[in-house]
C-alpha cells in the first residue's frame, strides 16, 4: 500500500500519512490531524512557492 508518504506539519512538526493524490493534485492541501493546520505538499506546494517567488520578485 505504498501510495502515501509521511508528511511533517510545518506548524506543529508532527508527522502523519498523506495519500499520493496530495502530491499530484495542484488544488489539494493537507490537514494536520494534530493541530488543524492546512498546508500544500508536492505539486501544490511547488506552485505556491513559485507564486510567492513571483510576488517577491515583482
Amino acid at each position: 500500500m505504498a501510495d502515501f508518504e509521511y508528511v511533517s506539519c510545518p506548524k506543529c512538526h508532527d508527522k502523519f500519512m498523506a495519500g499520493e493524490e496530495f502530491f499530484r493534485l495542484p488544488q489539494a492541501y493537507c490537514h494536520c490531524p494534530y493541530c488543524g493546520n492546512e498546508f500544500p505538499v508536492g505539486v501544490a506546494a511547488s506552485e505556491a512557492s513559485r507564486a510567492a517567488g513571483k510576488r517577491a520578485g515583482s
Partner: peptide, 12 residues
C-alpha cells in the same frame, strides 16, 4: 484507523 489494525492515509 482501518480494519487492518493499522492507520490508513489522509485522502482528498
Amino acid at each position: 484507523g482501518e480494519y487492518t489494525r493499522h492507520v490508513g492515509p489522509q485522502r482528498w
